[in-house]
Design a protein around this nucleic acid. Structure first.
Lengths: 228, 228
DNA sequence: TGTTTAATTTGAACACGTTCAATTTCTGGT
DNA sequence: ACCAGAAATTGAACGTGTTCAAATTAAACA
């Protein structure tokens, strides 16, 4: 039996080896960048044979995904606390996304290795069946942010708001990963202004002038999200 | 001297070999899909050694890019004619994007091989320095579509409209590439409805209610597009 | 035509992700 | 303590994209 997904329960030796490989990999990734890092070097640093690395991770990419999963797990506490503490939609969205930036900061470029998989068929795509669990957990944060805030939206669109915000976050992160401006200042600016814009849009969405857009918007979302 | 980019002028033997390799590659891609296709098989089908393929194309991906360039070149006539003939922004946008779908249809999935390069540093990314020429030519179509149509937009945003429409097109194509619905019906629907929505938005963009968005929008675009 | 230089072509070799048969180590049951 | 089976570990071998020194062919020029 391979422990590629499960075995989180056994706090055993196995789990420790897996962690050792993961950490070795992250070290090599930071040092050389994802592409230049070789599985041989990672295995060497973790003091195992290459085969062992593949016993624990199904591919080089999957190591990055494991890092992403760990991140998700470790951020959850912070995220929940923050959501409890803050009240407005704005502060919550700010909080969720800022947490991601803070956590991923030291490994920012590494996420580029995941963003490569645009194909929803690919197991490591952010849109794949395989990553559904992690994705849905992430969306839950946005759902909470939305739920007890007073946004009034047309009923055809409201059910999608959390998903859309998640998508917005993914876009921001993608931009951030490749943002070459000093200290990723561009991303900070983009985040700030697009968030402001978003809140204005939500505030005025109900106005009669924008009515014609509601039906269209709902139809688009229904189509895109139908069956997954 | 390597003919990887130039030598379009010499209608020579060289150009014919290049074309033979490109066509062989496309045949193998269609037959096996991009990933399963091997350079060895492509070379064999083109009746050259592997090395020759690399003499003409710097990588496997670059072959797809060459296909994309050829496409761009071959579509230009149709596109220009269409733009001359039609008058409204809507029909022009419809025309431009429909042309892409029609042309790329038989090789739809192949474009997935290019969409992989989200990193703007990568030579084959749609956002890279290296693809600037082809991208700007593509944007020109949208510029023409915008130019003599009567859209009134805030002056801070108008200069970016063509670029934004190009981005919209890229998004649609990306969706299309991975659209598994029968005959890509979802994409057709998405195209139709988002285009309608876009036109409504453009029509009402000047209304006072939306004023607060203009400055923000302009600032965002300035930031994102500054220095390329 | 002969010679020099450039363009083209070749295929073996390399690097790296990945696989897998074989081996070693661990675990639970007696 | 012993054994059977499961889990973990090994590293050689494979497939594939890519490189490159060497060989061949074409072009330029005397």
């Amino acid at each position: 039996m391979s422990p590629q997904k499960a075995n989180r329960t056994l706090g055993s030796k196995s789990e420790e080896t897996r962690a050792r490989i993961l950490n070795a990999a992250l070290a090599v990734f930071r040092e050389r960048g994802f592409e230049r890092a070789t599985m041989r070097e990672i295995a060497a640093k973790a003091e195992v044979a290459v085969g062992a690395a593949y016993y624990y991770f199904e591919s080089k990419d999957a190591i990055v995904m494991a890092f992403y999963e760990r991140a998700q797990r470790e951020m959850k506490a912070d995220l929940d606390a923050m959501l409890d503490r803050s009240r407005t939609l704005e502060s919550r969205l700010r909080g969720i996304i800022a947490e991601k930036f803070a956590y991923f900061g030291p490994n920012r470029k590494l996420l580029g290795a995941l963003s490569v998989h645009t194909d929803p068929e690919h197991p490591l795509s952010p849109f794949s069946q395989e990553t559904a669990a992690i994705r849905e957990q992430d969306i839950t944060s946005f759902q909470r942010a939305v739920d007890d805030s007073k946004v009034k939206l047309p009923p055809g669109i409201r059910p999608y708001l959390a998903k859309l915000l998640w998508l917005y976050q993914m876009g921001l992160i993608l931009f951030w990963v490749y943002d070459r401006s000093e200290g990723q200042a561009k991303t900070k600016l983009l985040f700030d202004k697009t968030l402001k814009m978003l809140l204005i849009v939500l505030r005025i969405a109900g106005f009669p002038l924008l009515r014609p857009l509601h039906r269209l918007g709902g139809e688009i979302l229904d189509a895109v999200y139908q069956k997954g």
